[in-house]
Design a protein around this nucleic acid. Structure first.
Length: 414
RNA sequence: GCGGGUGUAGCUCAGGUGGUUAGAGCACUAGAUUGUGGAUCUAGGGGUCGCCGGUUCAAGCCCGGUCACUCGCCCCA
């Protein structure tokens, strides 16, 4: 490590970045609460098994992207690559199935050992929701509607499309898998190298291949919707009908297959073309089988996760920082007075900055630099009269205000 | 993990085919202005040219490696 650099794929969030992230997180939380989702958080590391089992050994995340290490006690620990498995673990650990349905919102860092690109980092941040314990399609609709509100609320409605598909239930999936494997095996010789690999791990993935040759083969492949059983078809029909009723636009994408093992029935992605190759901005679906896989009682679940960095990148502008009041003391006596005054004004709810030394000019410059809304000048003259000189830094207008009621005079600059 | 591109000051970038002390704009600091910011002017600070090695009398420039970023693949948020 030659120079002092951050670890590959990690980034500092300086105040401007932080404000963008907060814009996303705050809006998402506020809307989630409106839908009845309460914020909670789980540890950023868990026993490796939580993810290995929950996400699926064969997935890319588990097979090559986890930050795993042995701690000093020899336990196998993994930095969370996503949060659904952790939330499910928390529900089971705390015996929360007695309180179904559960509705959670979370926000925080995730870790994946991948090659960084724009919109892809090794430490990144997600917001997400989980609706646990509702097997009916109402839950899917509600979860998607909330996602949609957040995307719209951030101002991305025009740049983002909702892609929707169903993975059916276990029975349907097994039936289709068999038919599909049969077909693909017949074209083995012409499949790309990547797809031969997928044939073993997740054949439905091949449907979404970008390889030309694969696409030709896929074009004539059996279609999943022909192999869905009645229950699965019915479930999906309810979901789409619900979205229609709410006026939520979506595009059915039969090729949409999510990578994680635990998904069933509804799956969806909110995608954009404005971010380059990393176009998925929010993704999720139903995971009714996950609780059983994790060793808990059968419990339904639906949710999504969204990448804060990706959403923050799409933000048209950086939210402005709060504008403080700048206190400018002139002389020793004023300096002492201002120390106290700053404290009082802060307690009264004002954001207050006082320069740290320097003459009036320098302090005014500093006030300007922190984008102060107003300056309060106090020197010997003012102290003698019991006033402060109050300057509006936007207009330059200046008035005298009594020191003991300064908070009232400053109220207009809040 | 695979393939392509890039890497000069805090930021954005100049530096024809290798040739003395590496430049600009913005930003920063100080002064003009010791009780008044944003504008202007003046001066100043700041670079082991990502890092290591090689070729050469001589490397910011050529070669190799390495690190980071970036574009695409894989996959995902």
């Amino acid at each position: 490590m030659p120079a002092l650099q951050p670890v590959r794929g990690t980034h500092d969030l300086l105040p401007e970045d932080s404000r963008r992230h907060r814009r996303v997180g705050d809006l998402a939380r506020a809307l989630a609460e409106r839908y009845g989702f309460a914020e909670m958080s789980t540890p950023i590391f868990e026993f490796t098994d939580v993810f290995a089992r929950g996400i699926g050994e064969a997935t890319d995340i588990v097979s090559k992207e986890m930050y795993t290490f042995a701690d000093r006690g020899g336990e196998h620990i993994t930095l969370r690559p996503e949060n659904t498995a952790g939330v499910v673990r928390a529900v089971i650990s705390n015996g929360l199935q007695q309180h179904l349905p559960l509705k959670y919102f979370y926000q925080g860092p995730m870790f994946r050992y991948e090659r960084p690109q724009k919109g892809r980092q090794r430490q990144f941040h997600q917001i997400g929701i989980e609706l646990i314990g509702v097997a009916q399609p109402q839950a899917d609709i509600e979860v998607i509607a909330l996602g949609c509100d957040i995307i719209d609320g951030l101002g991305f409605g025009a740049d983002v499309t909702l892609e929707l598909n169903t993975l059916g239930d276990g029975e349907s999936r097994q039936a289709y898998r068999a038919v599909l494997l049969d077909y693909l095996n017949g074209h083995r010789a012409k499949l790309s190298k990547d797809s031969l690999d997928r044939l073993e791990r997740n054949p439905m993935r091949i449907l979404d291949s970008k390889d030309e040759g694969d696409r030709r083969i896929v074009a004539d492949a059996p279609v999943y919707s022909d192999h869905l059983n009645a229950a699965s078809r019915d479930f999906f029909a309810h979901v789409t009908a619900g979205l229609d009723a709410l006026g939520i636009a979506y595009a059915i994408n039969p090729r949409l297959v999510r990578g994680l093992d635990y998904y069933c029935h509804t799956c969806f992605e909110f995608t954009t073309t404005t971010l380059g190759a990393q176009g998925t901005v929010m993704g999720g679906g139903r995971y009714d089988g996950l609780f059983a896989i994790m060793g808990g009682p059968d419990t339904a679940g639906v949710g999504w996760a969204a990448g804060i960095e990706r959403l923050a990148m799409m933000l048209a502008e950086t939210p402005a920082a709060a504008r403080p009041i700048a206190l400018v003391p002139i002389g020793e006596a004023a300096e002492r007075r201002v120390l106290i005054l700053a404290h009082q004004l802060r307690h009264a709810g004002f954001a207050v900055e006082h320069g740290y030394g320097g003459n009036v000019g320098k302090r005014m410059k500093r006030a300007n630099k922190v984008n102060a809304r107003a300056a309060v000048l106090i020197g010997d003259d003012e102290l003698a009269r019991g006033t402060a000189t109050l300057r509006d830094l936007d207009t330059g207008a200046q008035v005298a205000a009594p020191l003991d009621t300064l908070a009232e005079a400053l109220a207009q600059f809040r």
